Every structure is written in structure tokens, then in C-alpha cells.
Amino acid sequence: MIKEACVESFFEAKQAQDNGANRIELCSDLANDGLTPDFETMKKACSELDIPVMVMARPRAGNFVHSADEVEEMKAAIDQAKEAGAAGVVFGLLTPHNNIDEANTRLLAEYAEPLPVTFHKAIDELDDPVEGVRILKTIPNIKRILSSGGKATALEGQEVIRKMIAEAEGKITILVAGKVSHENVVEIQQITGTTELHGRRIVGDLSS
């Protein structure tokens, strides 16, 4: 089981590592579901931690429909992640019609190489997250999809998560999120069958 801790500071990242996290998702502003962290935090986390750091590339709060200018901002965030020594990047883009933005996702996934990409919980905005998996598995360099199965919690979304894992056919890892904590992580792993889980409290409460 891989436990990815979602953090918004170096202090939290170090605490999560010390508590047994296997990987970090580094963001800023988790009150708004996570934005791009600043470059200094990226560099410190990537250089001083012993576990992989995935860097969020999200230029603003709100929806996941991004303009051409915002896509350029995401490219800049990816450049910073590469320079900092990140293990991968995390982003998600949708169209105004609430579908996967295939064109810009392909563009950014290619731009991110050789860093692997996690498509984040934007997928949970879709009417059918399983269809989202069908699309994303055709895009090179999308290695993971972060999802709670379109529901508020992984427990509520477990049926859809299992369908997403089946649809992924082993080509993409479904990284299960949605109120995953150190108290329920084993249960959620068992009922979904996933190998990777993600949460703010996945290795205990973090105090920033």
C-alpha cells in the first residue's frame, strides 16, 4: 500500500514522512482544494525529504476550466517542479461542457515529461468518472488519477472507484482519495482493491 499525504508546507511534509507517508502531494491553499506551491517550498521539500514529492500545478481556485494564459501558468509551474527535483506533477483540466479537456491535458502531459502526471480530482466533477478514465488512459504520461469516485468520500464512491480501477486495466493507477485517514485507510484499501491512497490525515493529523 502506498500512502500519499496531502500537505501545504515543508513542515507538514516532513511530519508526514516521519509518520510513515510513502509519497507527498505538495500544494498551497488546501482550503481551496490545493494550488501551486511556491518555488522555495518545492525546492526545500524535494531536496530535504527522502520520499517522492508530487507538485500541484493549479493556478487558481474555482473550477477546472483553464484559459490559454492559465495553461501557460501551469507550464511554468511544471518547469519549477522539474527544476526543484519533483518526482511528478498533479493537474486536471475540464471543458466548459464538463468533459476532460483532452487537448490541453495532452499538451501538458507531454510537456511534463519525463515527470509522470497525476490527473487530480477534477475527474470527480464529471457525470461519469469511469468515462473519464477511458479517455485519460489514452493520453501518454498520465500515470495516476486521483478520485473519490465522484462522491464526497471514498466510502460513498467505492462502487464507482472499483469500476474506475477495472476500466483503467492496469494502465493507470487509481489513487483513492476522499476523507481517507489513518483510521480507515486499510478498510478503504480492502473494499476498493486499490494499491495507492491519498489523504490529508492518511498518516495522522498534521499541525502546520
Rank of each mutant, 00 (worst) to 15 (best):
T41G: 07
A31E: 14
T153K: 09
A57G: 10
E40H: 10
I100Q: 05
I24V: 01
V89W: 04
F11I: 09
T195I: 13
G132R: 05
K151Y: 09
G170S: 08
L136S: 11
E8M: 12
P96S: 12
G199E: 02
D128W: 04
D128K: 06
E167G: 08
V89N: 08
R60T: 06
R23W: 00
D101S: 04
V90T: 15
V71G: 04
A5M: 00
K151C: 14
L146N: 13
I174N: 05
E12G: 00
E8D: 15
L35V: 09
I202F: 01
T153P: 07
A177E: 03
K163I: 01
V180M: 08
V89K: 04
S208K: 12
G149N: 06
S181Q: 09
D69M: 06
D38G: 11
T194F: 01
N19Q: 11
N141P: 12
N141F: 12
A13M: 04
D69P: 00
L108D: 02
L206K: 04
G150W: 05
T95G: 12
S181L: 06
L206D: 06
K137M: 03
E12A: 14
G132W: 06
T118P: 07
M1W: 02
A13I: 02
M56L: 09
D124R: 13
C27E: 08
F91H: 11
N22K: 08
Q190P: 00
C46I: 09
E167A: 15
A177Y: 02
L197R: 01
A112W: 02
E25Y: 04
A31H: 08
M164R: 10
V65I: 10
A168P: 02
L30T: 09
L107E: 11
L26K: 10
I139Q: 05
L115I: 07
E183P: 02
G157Y: 03
